[in-house]
Nucleic acid binder design. Structure first.
Lengths: 134, 134
DNA sequence: TGGATAGTGATACTAACTATCAGTACGTGA
DNA sequence: TCACGTACTGATAGTTAGTATCACTATCCA
């Protein structure tokens, strides 16, 4: 919430409601799910607010294996990557100096200048059976 | 084309037309662009055929920085990653043993089992001015 | 060549957004 | 504490990327 104030955005009822829900929900969620959970908030406002939070860096957009997006609260401030459970959809965060080093090394090998990168790991998390419950 | 035959798929006129266009177009393309370039082929068929090629491993789906998908012919057979020029959209491929090693190391650190991963580098390629043409 | 069936195009539908716009509410300045 | 500009909102319609359905057609094998 403070993030909004710092950036000169207004702190409004819909934004507070969405932020509150995000704090409770420590897992990946879709915009649609949020919208359903908050029938009093317009769909457009949900999308606008998520976008605002993503820009502010408090929420991350994480593509699932099929490309469908889920959103996840950012618990660490720094640059980090995501792991997504292919079964339950739970989103985890991790920082990895080794990957960052590897990327810098690759930057020297490929043509052009790296300006950004996306890394997602697809996992079967500890709470899901590794075989998909078969 | 041989890939289709090997998998028991039929070699049809629309598939040949799409494959031919892909071979000419060595850069990232959207499904929509392909569909426009081939007005004689139905939109649904374009999407179906791209999906088929992706499953066969001859075409890769690469998300741009904003998540919008572009497709790219796979020129190397092995597991590889992609770089996408944020200006012209050109898609490059690279293999990187260092990243794979880093990922294996991370697999031991994070909870769960890694089943797959996606890595995209966003670059300004050698043919684009680094400052965005300003 | 004939026939089973894979593949096709048209169309309608879905998911995930974005744009528009009139109306509301927030916060500042007086 | 009121007025007023503008940020924000909800409803609605539109867009983009893709999937589902279904009657029709083209492939390929016998």
């Amino acid at each position: 919430m403070a993030v909004l104030e710092n950036r000169g955005y207004r702190v409004t009822a819909p934004r507070k409601a969405i932020a509150k829900l995000l704090e409770q929900k420590h897992e990946g969620f879709t915009a649609e799910a949020l919208s359903e959970a908050l029938p009093s908030v317009g769909r457009a406002t949900v999308f606008r607010t998520i976008k605002l939070f993503v820009e502010a860096g408090v929420v991350c957009r994480v593509p699932k294996m099929d490309g469908a997006p889920v959103y996840s609260l950012a618990h660490v401030d720094q640059r980090h990557h995501h792991s997504v459970c292919v079964q339950c959809g739970a989103v985890g965060e991790f920082e990895a100096a080794t990957i960052d080093r590897a990327l810098r090394a690759i930057g020297a090998e490929i043509p052009g200048q790296i300006v950004d990168h996306h890394i997602e790991l697809y996992v079967t998390c500890d709470y899901c059976p590794a075989d998909g419950g078969k």
